[in-house]
Write a protein that binds this DNA or RNA. Sequence first.
DNA 1: TGTACATCAGTGAACGCGCGTTCACTGATGTAC
DNA 2: TGTACATCAGTGAACGCGCGTTCACTGATGTAC
Lengths: 203, 203
Amino acid sequence: MAEDKKPDLRTRLIDAAEAEIAEKGLMGLKARDVTARAGCALGAIYNAVSDLDELVMRVNSRTLERLGAALAPASRADSPEAVTLALADAYAVFALQNRRLWSALFEHRLPEGVEMPDWHRAEHEVLIARIGAPLAALRPDLPEEAIRLRVRTLFGAVHGVVHLALQGRLVGVPEALLRQEVAALVGALVIGARAAVAGGGGR
Amino acid sequence: MAEDKKPDLRTRLIDAAEAEIAEKGLMGLKARDVTARAGCALGAIYNAVSDLDELVMRVNSRTLERLGAALAPASRADSPEAVTLALADAYAVFALQNRRLWSALFEHRLPEGVEMPDWHRAEHEVLIARIGAPLAALRPDLPEEAIRLRVRTLFGAVHGVVHLALQGRLVGVPEALLRQEVAALVGALVIGARAAVAGGGGR
DNA sequence: TGTACATCAGTGAACGCGCGTTCACTGATGTAC
DNA sequence: TGTACATCAGTGAACGCGCGTTCACTGATGTAC
């Protein structure tokens, strides 16, 4: 009666893993904590999923999906410049609000020699495409190949600033100023892109 | 006779740890491998050093010093723009040539609640200052505080592109194109900075 | 020059723990007749 | 409706291993007399 119909164990395990990572970070993820949280026995993990690694990838997969959703509204801004700026800002905000889950995206390493499954790789392509659209509009002079490259560079730049800021240590930007600095960075790059088109210089 | 005067054990241990990290990465660093390589017993580590963590910090300290040396020539370029570009390029080259040692700089986490010792923190400040000089020359309109912030943003941007490229997975720039892309990135930022001064806009 | 003693870097077997994974078992559910 | 049997998700104690750290011991070196 009060016994809600529980979701399928596999889902509960992914939920639990997600919550654990959100609380303790990827390094703090332990099989025992996950099963305790999901309310099942330790061994049950291996019925639902092949591996702890798979569990992490399922969580990362969700995070990527949520990230995608968080970036979606940005694409509706009314100029390529505005879209690019909005994407970068949304990225920073998402990272700030989901720090550990977001970090897990980049921290997770598969054991030596194991390849990332295609379904996970494909999810990244979606992100690339989303950034690529405004950039292509901004630089109609560049071939698709060059755009794809620039997307990666732009993404890397924004990512790096956010990443170091969230790590806190070393040489990061203070978190309170992160959005502002990301905006300054992307703003400069976007102006540079426009100037390149106007000037006719390929680079 | 053929017995060369061996350096002090502590030094040999740091040498060995450095070599191990260079070969296998920070995650692959094991006390037993280090001592085997240094030619001493396992327990000897704890006479020379308080901890494996300290050993890592000693290695990182060296890496930072070598990074500093690798960046030094860049400062002799003849305009602030050129210096900034040369610094970024030297950074990318250093990372490419010292991938695992460079990565260790950012991967190493001290156990919860342990603070980074000052001697290590100070070494980072040196790097910041080195990038700050040309940037301050480029933006004489900005107060020192703002320059310090921009240095971190610029550093983060370059770092991010390099970092993702070296990771290889996900959304990185291909390594062969890394230097070119870093140059494009920094070039655009430097142009943006100059334009900001000319235009009188603070941002 | 010799003897007794203290020091301490260096040794390596053993400790201890964290933790992913396995596996023999249980019990609920479904199927055949 | 009842009985026998198969299946299989779920259980949790036990396994096994990697690995940082400790600690009782050794033996070389230095000091005092």
